[in-house]
Each structure stands twice: as C-alpha cells, then as structure tokens.
Design a protein around this nucleic acid. Structure first.
Length: 306
DNA sequence: CGGCTTTGACCAGCGC
DNA sequence: GCGCTGGTCAAAGCCG
C-alpha cells in the first residue's frame, strides 16, 4: 500500500553513494530483453508525455506545445509492422497521442470519448466482433499485451514505492531472474486510466529503486501525496524544463538519465524507458561519475546551468 | 464494507 | 516443440 511503502521519501535517508553502479542492472539480462539503453534528454518533457502534472506555471505553455507535437508525432510518424507492436498505445495513456488510432488498438481516449476501453475490453470493436468466442481472460490479455510508451526512474531510495501524485493498486509481484528482489506491478486506481508501473530494486545496487511507467495518465493526479508532502519524483521533475518531443517504440527501450536533484532532494535518477528501434550507444559504467554525485559528469550541456 | 495487498496459477512471448 | 520468463488474473485475507 502506498501508505506503507510510499512513506514520504523526503523523510527517508538517502544515501549519496555516487560510486554505486546502476548501469549493470539495466544492462542485465532482463533489461536487455527490453533493449534497454541509455541517453540523455530533458526530463520534464518525458514526464509530461505521461500526463504528469509536474510543470511549473512558467513552462505550461511550452509544455502544451510539446505535448501537441508529441501527440502528432506519435500519431502520424509511428507505425510498426510487428505483430506485437502496440506503439500506438491504448486508452488514455496512449491513444491520446494517437487520435487517428491504430486499428489494433481499440482504446479511445476516455478524456475525449465517454467510453472507457480499459474497463470494458469486451466492447472492443476492432477485433472484428469475434469477442463472444474468446474467453474474457484471453481478450483481456490480448489488450494488455499492447505496449504503452514507457520510461523509468532510478531512485536512490530505501522505500520501494515512491509517491508520484497518483494512486496505485498493486496487482502482482514476481520474482525476477538474476535478482534477489521481486518486481511489483501497479496500475493506476483510476478506472479510466491504463497507466501501469513496475517497481523493482536493482540487483547491483539494492539502494536503487527502478520504477518503470507505462502509459499516460488521462486524468489529473490526486494531488500531492497524502500527508501533504510533495513526492520527490515530482519535485525532482519540476527541476527540469520542457524539452523536445520524443518518440516511443516498444521494440527498443531507451533509458534516460537526467541531472541529479539538488542536494535537498533525494538522489533520484530519472530514466526514460523510451521505445525505439534505434538505440543510442550504451553508457559505459566506467563513465559514471564518482566524485560529483550521481550524474555530475553526464549532465547534458544544456542542463548544466540549472 | 470498500479498498488494497498477497500470492499461486495461468497465459503468451521468446529463445533455443 | 519445449521450456523459461515476464506479465496478469483473481481469490483470499487484511486493514482502516
């Protein structure tokens, strides 16, 4: 439960062991299966694409522009021939950026349409009306398999489940191969929202929590985390300005690392798990900074002045 | 009593 | 085709 796991991270003692390595975990077998890779970008734009309400007022307009651009890009520039490709995204999380929609994704944006596909998968009309012959469980799985845009945060935290302004319901937990730590699965409690997230600890550095988000929220957050404290993920994200539009693709996963939070923030490393076929070059572990905090040497040029 | 977590089972995708 | 693994379901139980 969030109240148990999501204790205000700000109150958690975060280690600043900059020598700890997180790359190996992400480059490990599990991550490799997702094509995990690394590169840098503008974190808030990443977050904005997932519907996070984390923008500062001054950047709201700019954010809107980028959001629109992204939606357009995602809707028109992406197409994949893979049978397992769900890049178009579904429901509020993905289709918001895909008004034209992929025929494979019968999930209109609830924020636009009154019908919610997430709660009514059987209502799908893009499967040729064959649903009656398919067990509901199978149908659900068919839809569930559609991948949403993803991105991940790596957080130096002792608590696994970090508050992000939304409410989550845990629906599963699995042991992860080559990792002593289980992976937890959460979905947004909003019935119209299909956003999910996975939370796991790095096997290489147990102090690092890897939170992977999938999809975009189609609703506002419930506000600041219960207890009135701003969660550090959001707080962290607020340090960034909106950035460039980005693309997502389920056949490759790119991770974004951003600049470290201020010293008053826990050491959190946002990693966008971007979906792309063309992955950037992996960041060698040896390039990780050791003396300037987690990311002292790898902050993108444009972000050093912040 | 409603909402949530836990946990075993099930299923699909993927690599060999 | 088979086995492994990740992801999801759903029943049971817990908690406020």
């Amino acid at each position: 439960m969030e109240d148990k796991e999501g204790l205000d991270p700000a109150g958690t003692e975060f280690k600043s062991d900059s020598s700890s390595s997180w790359t190996p975990t992400l480059a490990g077998p599990d991550s490799a299966s997702d094509g995990v890779n690394y590169f840098f970008d503008r974190e808030s734009s990443i977050l904005s694409e997932f519907g996070w309400n984390i923008l500062q007022p001054d950047h709201a307009d700019e954010f809107e522009r980028f959001s629109e651009l992204d939606r357009h890009d995602l809707a028109g520039d992406f197409s994949c021939s893979s049978k397992s490709c769900g890049v178009a995204g579904g429901s509020c999380s993905g289709t918001a950026s895909n008004p034209g929609g992929s025929a494979e994704v019968p999930t209109p944006n609830p924020s636009v349409s009154s019908s919610s596909s997430e709660d009514q998968p059987e209502k799908s009309t893009d499967f040729g009306g064959k649903q009656p012959e398919i067990p509901s469980r199978v149908k659900k799985k068919v839809q569930k398999r559609i991948r949403q845009p993803r991105f991940a945060f790596m957080t130096k935290s002792e608590v696994d489940h970090l508050e992000d302004g939304y409410r989550w319901r845990k629906y599963g937990q699995k042991a992860v191969k080559n990792s002593p730590f289980p992976r937890s699965y959460y979905r947004c409690t909003n019935s119209k929202c299909t956003v999910k997230k996975r939370v796991e600890r790095s096997s290489e550095d147990p102090t690092v929590v890897i939170t992977t988000y999938e999809g975009q929220h189609c609703h506002h957050s419930v506000g600041y985390p219960r207890g009135g404290l701003i969660n550090h993920e959001v707080a962290f994200a607020r340090q960034f300005t909106p950035g460039i539009s980005q693309f997502y693709h389920p056949h490759g996963v790119e991770l974004h690392r951003g600049i470290p939070p201020s010293t008053t923030q826990p050491h959190q490393v946002p990693i966008e798990v971007r979906e792309s076929r063309e992955l950037p070059k992996p960041l060698p572990t040896t390039q990780l900074p050791k003396d300037e905090g987690l990311l002292g040497d790898i902050v993108p040029p444009g972000m050093r002045n912040r």
